[in-house]
Design a protein around this nucleic acid. Structure first.
Length: 434
DNA sequence: CATATCACG
DNA sequence: ACGTACGTGATATGG
């Protein structure tokens, strides 16, 4: 406590008003657990076993040799030595040639074996990490799995989840969504999923004061389409172009460079540079805000979230550490970003207030929501938090009431200069609820 | 136990 | 000249 007091009252408040009240909420979520359909997962596992065996056979036929598909080392040797595929599409790792999915996608049209490997990779990952693992962790008496929500692990203030990690349950592919069907509410209850819509971009709009973005959120506009319109300088935007806007909106939060932007959208590097500089021109306050965070990390040694949560940085005393105590606006950022490790730390500094403020807000919402559920004696249990999403199980007779309470509590957890919007879904399992 | 890979926000 | 997307946790391989 003494140490915290020295750091100011915001951190005392954060501790006493948010983190400490959150602890029993997390404890109850862990203890409640979430119900899992073991039989369903077992049948998925059998189906996967057959599919994987069939892919393996075809792979060995196409490659002309049998090998361990789960060994990146062996796969690299097959692809780049035996089959002599284009090594320029891969890169060196400490142990050989990279065979990660971005490499495989570049090689996909060069040899029939590659598509098989991609399919196998995805399905075997899902089987070993989720389909075969979750049933073993189900408590026999309750039919539920109980994760650990770690409150003091991350650098940004987010929670993490482990044993098992229930914050990375698959959703992005067709087969993934079938895994979500295994997550059930209490018998005869409903599963409810409520997530903040674009909370990090809204926080960025708030913290930066960028009027164009704020106005868009206030009007309920499609901000990815807006960004696409600003970058392409035209009114009508295709779905493809909107995707471009979305990539750059998210990329900026992480400090994405032109190369990565080009690679993940398919535009050329010079087009990517053009887009990034137009973005800077159209949303100048976003960039000055992000740069200010980098300057603060250097001059004060930390950056802060909405609730005063701090992420500290420790730069080499013989290098960037010398900038400690200097006027943030006198720091030459281009110079500071010179080193690879330092540049990464500075991107992390720019990102931390955004990611961390999002964590602040959902934590406040969780404490308030749990309090309201208890006060009103509502038959509903908080089960999971997935960074911008809360999952509950609810007695269907009280759905209308609980839905309204969840939305109101999450949206009012913190007042920003832009609205917080919550999307909600209800179903008989986690897939249906999304 | 290090490494590569990949699941999520 | 070049690079650079933030934050997590789990799995299989191979030494």
């Amino acid at each position: 406590m003494k140490k915290l007091q020295d750091l100011g009252s915001a951190l005392i408040d954060l501790l006493e008003q948010v983190e400490q009240p959150l602890e029993p909420v997390l404890a109850e979520m862990e203890s409640t657990g979430i119900r899992i359909d073991i039989q369903y997962l077992n049948s998925l596992s059998s189906e996967l076993r057959e599919t994987l065996e069939s892919i393996e056979k075809k792979t060995y036929e196409a490659a002309g040799v049998e090998f361990n598909l789960s060994s990146p080392k062996q796969l690299g040797e097959i692809l780049f030595e035996k089959l002599r595929l284009d090594r320029r599409k891969s890169r060196r790792t400490k142990t050989g040639w990279s065979t990660d999915v971005s490499v495989l996608e570049k090689l996909e049209l060069d040899h029939p074996v590659v598509a098989l490997v991609i399919e196998h990779r995805m399905l075997s990952k899902l089987r070993s990490t989720y389909v075969d693992t979750l049933p073993k962790l189900v408590e026999k008496e309750t039919g539920r799995v109980h994760t650990d929500f770690n409150q003091a692990v991350t650098a940004t203030g987010r929670l993490s989840s482990s044993n098992p990690n229930l914050q990375n349950i698959p959703i992005r592919t067709e087969f993934s969504r079938r895994i979500r069907k295994a997550f059930l509410p209490k018998k005869d209850w409903k599963l409810l999923s409520a997530d903040y819509s674009q909370i990090e971009l809204r926080i960025l709009a708030h913290l930066s004061g960028e009027e164009l973005l704020q106005e868009a959120f206030r009007n309920g506009d499609d901000v990815h389409a807006l960004t696409a319109r600003l970058l392409l300088d035209k009114d009508d935007i295709s779905l493809e172009e909107r995707r471009l806007g979305k990539t750059i909106n998210f990329g900026v939060i992480y400090g994405m460079g032109a190369q990565r932007f080009a690679r993940s959208t398919g535009v050329t590097k010079s087009e990517a540079k053009e887009f990034l500089s137009r973005f800077k021109l159209r949303y100048p306050k976003i960039f000055s805000f992000l740069e200010l965070q980098e300057r603060l990390a250097l001059s004060k040694g930390f950056v802060e979230t909405l609730l005063g949560r701090r992420r500290f940085f420790h730069f080499d005393r013989n290098g960037l550490g010398r900038l400690l105590g200097k006027d943030p606006y006198e720091i030459d950022l281009d110079l500071a970003r010179r080193g690879g490790l330092e540049a990464q730390q500075l991107r992390a500094a720019a990102n931390a207030p955004i990611q961390g403020s999002s964590a602040d807000i959902i934590k406040v919402a969780m404490v308030q929501l749990q309090e309201m559920l208890k006060l009103a004696n509502l038959p509903a249990n908080l089960l999971l938090q997935v960074h911008d999403e809360l999952v509950l199980e609810v007695d269907p007779n009280f759905l209308t009431e609980v839905k309204a309470l969840v939305i109101r509590t999450m949206q009012q957890a913190f007042s920003l200069d832009v609205p917080l919007v919550v999307d909600i879904g209800v179903g008989n399992n986690w897939m249906e609820a999304k």
